[in-house]
Design a protein around this nucleic acid. Structure first.
Length: 333
DNA sequence: CGGCTTTGACCTGCGC
DNA sequence: GCGCAGGTCAAAGCCG
């Protein structure tokens, strides 16, 4: 299995987990995405969320049963609209290679080598982030294009080719990915998304869709793809933080609880591993024998993965909470 | 008519 | 340098 997994292209393994995180486990998080039994009391089904927790997958599709404390909630969720996060993990989109495999992870360049939190905070705290800049560039590009219809193809090419300076790289914002068992690709999360692209994914019969938050000045993106190993599993990757309330919230919907504006982000808080550190989540997300170097979640394995892909970093759970402020910890009885 | 999706072209970055 | 693959753009079309 491990050998198989090692061959899995990185883009099918959006989750990364490090032993440092995986070895800590106390308390019980109330992360709505993962703990349906908690989320149930927090979120209204009408929001459209459905994130039953009992079974989650690691990044390689292995289902782990946490029915001991959550199985009962499955039935609840089966009546709900869409999917269930099988796992969630922050992905550092910033400082490492783009999703590796053979490809280049696309036109997205790496960010600095800083803590993934740092660029994210700074970039969000002022709208001149590189991501925002990229966004502006896109707008500018589009604008100038419409303004100058009669430009020749060379000009067109220049516009498509972003006018960024040599050596200037676009920053990636922190990313979170989770797997959901769902027939629906695009999960309802309370925000409005505009699809801006779709690509065939190597080694997968399922295309990957690219969405962008429709809110102005909001640079949050998400990628949705279906696992080639388990077609019933949808891999959703969020990139960036919303700088606005969800439309659903404004309508009195509870969806905003899931993705409220990242206030601490905007304030530049580092909010590292504090009391709210959802350590239970760590084990929820990434159980496994970390000493088993044949296991995808093992130390050895991830060392290899990191070497190979340099994509996923230690999950920063302060960041997690920044992105999902409703992400809290509660003590285990 | 505005907002959204579709889709082909193009860009970037990486490995060989 | 070339080819590949991921990511993005933007025109065209669809839909309410």
């Amino acid at each position: 299995m491990s050998d198989e997994n090692r061959d899995i292209p990185s883009h099918f393994n959006p989750f990364f987990h490090d032993q440092t995180a995986g070895t800590t486990s106390t308390g019980n998080s109330t992360f709505p995405f993962l703990h349906g039994h908690n989320y149930h009391s927090m979120y209204s089904p009408q929001v459209g969320f459905d994130f039953p927790p009992p079974n989650y997958m690691n990044l390689f599709g292995t289902t782990h049963d946490h029915s001991s404390h959550a199985a009962a909630s499955l039935d609840h969720y089966s009546a709900m609209s869409c999917s269930s996060p099988e796992a969630i993990c922050p992905i550092d989109g910033g400082s490492r290679k783009p999703s590796g495999g053979g490809g280049g992870g696309g036109g997205v360049a790496e960010s600095s080598d800083q803590n993934p939190l740092t660029p994210a905070h700074s970039s969000l705290s002022n709208s001149s982030s590189s991501e925002g800049a990229a966004h502006d560039q896109v707008k500018d590009s589009g604008k100038s294009k419409t303004d100058d219809h009669c430009e020749d193809d060379d000009e067109k090419l220049n516009k498509v080719n972003k006018p960024k300076k040599k050596g200037e790289k676009r920053e990636r914002q922190p990313r979170f990915a989770f797997m959901t068992k769902s027939e629906i690709d695009n999960l309802e999360d309370g925000y409005r998304w505009r699809k801006y692209g779709q690509k065939a994914v190597k080694n997968s019969p399922f295309p990957r869709s690219y969405y962008r938050c429709t809110s102005q000045k909001c640079t949050v993106k998400k990628r949705v793809e279906r696992s080639y190993e388990d077609p019933s599993t949808v891999i959703t990757t969020y990139e960036g933080q919303h700088n606005h309330h969800s439309p659903a919230t404004l309508r009195g919907n509870a969806a905003g609880i899931f993705f409220p504006p990242s206030s601490s982000f905007l304030q530049g808080s580092t909010s590292s591993l504090g009391p709210s550190f959802p350590q239970h989540l760590l084990t929820q997300m990434l159980p496994v024998n970390l000493n088993d170097d044949h296991h995808p979640n093992s130390m050895y394995y991830h060392q290899q993965q990191q070497q190979q892909q340099q994509l996923f970093q230690l999950p920063d759970y302060g960041l997690l909470q920044d992105i999902f402020p409703s992400f809290t910890q509660k003590e285990e009885p």
